[in-house]
Design a protein around this nucleic acid. Structure first.
Lengths: 210, 210
DNA sequence: TTGACTTTACTGCATCGTGCAGTATATGGT
DNA sequence: ACCATATACTGCACGATGCAGTAAAGTCAA
């Protein structure tokens, strides 16, 4: 039986359409460019191209360099057709895992310090990604895009990322100010501040975005 | 061997600390309240409380109603201690799967219509969640929170959600305007508009958030 | 030039998590 | 009385991850 095509399979196939890659290069490239839209483990990125070969969507050969070999994968014309067909299929709903937010929801099991720390860790992770994308944009102006004809897509994508990261960073600031008013994480319930905030939210407004 | 405690285990344990739940109720509650921070399948939500019982963090009994039985789970004092210890551990980095963004990145394999459709689908999914949270806030003002002493946490969490959803919706509008200027998805590269946008982003600004 | 450390370049395996099918009772409406 | 829908799960196949293990190539310093 031909292996099932998952979204990850199409992601790898789309990369192969840009140029042939080795398995290792695919793991690196997926870390750099796909991570923000479709974060997948290196292990999977090594397995996917093999499935594509089985399906006839890619071919492979071993490249020798000294005593060392690596697998190079190349897309086939069947693979290109499969990619085009993919664009017509239904998109999966978004899915966001934010453990820091889970810890906020259940912050009453720990101290205020624990909650601050969860926010700090979120801020550090987001800040790293944020900086990486800003640097990437500077490199597009400077050295250019590795696949120049695709710049319009990468930049529109980056707009999303930076927008999102800024929103999260602004919320973290707001959350810290809010928590600074608490002397405990527990049993505060509907305080005056929280009620004001709830009214705003019930009206589809937020203290930050409007 | 005692089963390993995952973040999902602690999420369920935290729910059990609010009140005893049946397996089915846990799946419903996780859909309603945890979904936005920690989306997990119903299947997992049925398995987790069993592991908690094995660990001694919960007890279980079968409740009979007629010819029908259901498993009720209750937290133990060991479970409460484990929860407190969890708040001191390191938070996992965020992880966002947005297939719509992946399709934007590789939009040059399909038509402009395909790309608009991916954006429409994202907008529909986000819009649904957005509305659900706004309604939830209205219900807090109206009937109140099911666990009133935790309102301050839920509302701060909701601020994050609504903020995020608004950001995504605004970006979708922007992306549509941008794409409206294209006659094709392919090979546009660094257009004048894209260059302006890249300069903005490289300066850590976006056309939306500032 | 030898040794230590990092990077490249993977594979196998155990385990985690998801989707789906299947089973069976209860409930509300026509 | 019948049908749809909600309740209340379990088993199983398979997808995805993490980690350990293997091994060659590059790099820098004593």
């Amino acid at each position: 039986m031909a292996p099932k095509m998952t979204t990850s399979s199409y992601a790898v196939l789309a990369l192969l359409d840009l140029k042939p890659w080795t398995g290792y290069e695919l793991t690196q490239q997926a870390q750099r460019s796909l991570r923000y839209a479709w974060p997948k483990s290196a292990r999977l990125l090594y397995s996917e191209p093999k499935k594509l070969v089985e399906r006839g969507y890619a071919t492979t050969y071993k490249e020798q360099s000294g005593n060392r070999s690596r697998n190079v994968y190349e897309i086939t014309s069947e693979g290109r057709i499969a990619l085009e067909e993919w664009t017509e299929t239904r998109t999966q709903p978004p899915r966001m895992e934010l453990e820091a937010l889970l810890r906020l929801l259940f912050a009453d099991h720990g101290s205020i310090e624990d909650l601050y720390r969860a926010l700090d860790e979120l801020e550090a992770d987001i800040g790293e990604h944020h900086q990486a994308i800003v640097d990437l944009m500077a490199s597009y102006l400077d050295g250019g895009h590795p696949f120049p004809h695709r710049t319009h897509l990468s930049v529109l994508f980056a707009t999303f990322q930076i927008d999102m990261f800024k929103t999260i960073e602004r919320w973290i600031e707001f959350a810290r100010d809010e928590i600074a008013e608490w002397e405990t994480t527990k049993d505060l319930g509907m305080t005056a501040r929280t009620e004001t905030l709830t009214r705003l939210l019930a009206n589809d407004q937020t203290p930050l975005s409007d």
